[in-house]
Amino acid sequence: MNDFWIILVGALVAGSCSVLGCFLIVRKMTLIGDAISHSVLPGIVLAFLLTGTRDSVPMLVGAAALGLLTVFLIQLFQSSGVQADAAIGIVFTSLFAAGIVLVSLYTQQIDFDLEHVLYGEIAYTPWNTLTIGGIEAGPKAVWIVGSCFILNLILIFVFFKQFKLVSFDPALAAAMGIPVLLFHYVLMSLISMTTVASFDSVGSILVVGMLIIPAATAYLLSDRLSGMIKVSIVVGVLSSVIGYYSATILDASISGCMVGSAASLFCLAFLFSPTHGLVSRLLKRRKSKERYA
């Protein structure tokens, strides 16, 4: 049963991340997930200091607030003329540094395991269960990440045409009266929410990996945005299943192995994708050379 829960949580994280990751890839803002997953640290610490509990609700709220602040600051610096990636870098390193300073200032009061917060392990999720009215309702993580997944799917599905146009041609979208900035912030809020909700249970490396790698794989396999999203979900879920079993064989970090499997699937796509793969393109070129030789 524990196997099932872990794989399910992994698959849900992979699914919710890869849907959003597709938009990050086409908008060339891939590293924003990495940034958010680091810059929420001071939010978590502050929530902990204020409430004095390790309860996940205040932490989620604190982290989500910092996630939005991150996005806001990045946007602000970018509009004042800083390159996008540099703006991302400045914001997340500063906030993360502030978080570490906070931790060390209050190190006496709190027993704060920095590594756990950042590199949490998916292996423990089955034991942290949710009980509603005395009934065991499965691991908490399943509920939290699962609701994220569903919310992401619904919003992306309902506003697909807006998200697509805003990513492809923001000028036309703005001229048509679509609120470009609003959709930017909605997407970014979904990303902060997903990042925050997932990494408490599975660790930030899995979140960051799943935001980027399955979507990039799908980018090489599909020529349509809608298809790309579907493929990326499949790739994400597949990597969490493969990752789990390779972790049990290797007796190693499950999150790490899930990311590792995603990376291996990406390599396969990079080499053998029928349209964009390196090998298939070389083969095609050789064939046409032979024909005209």
Partner: peptide, 15 residues
């Protein structure tokens, strides 16, 4: 950059 970052770090965590 993102792909290399997360895959290397993922493999690093495994090690």
């Amino acid at each position: 950059l993102g792909i290399v970052l997360s895959s290397f770090f993922g493999f690093g965590i495994v090690m």
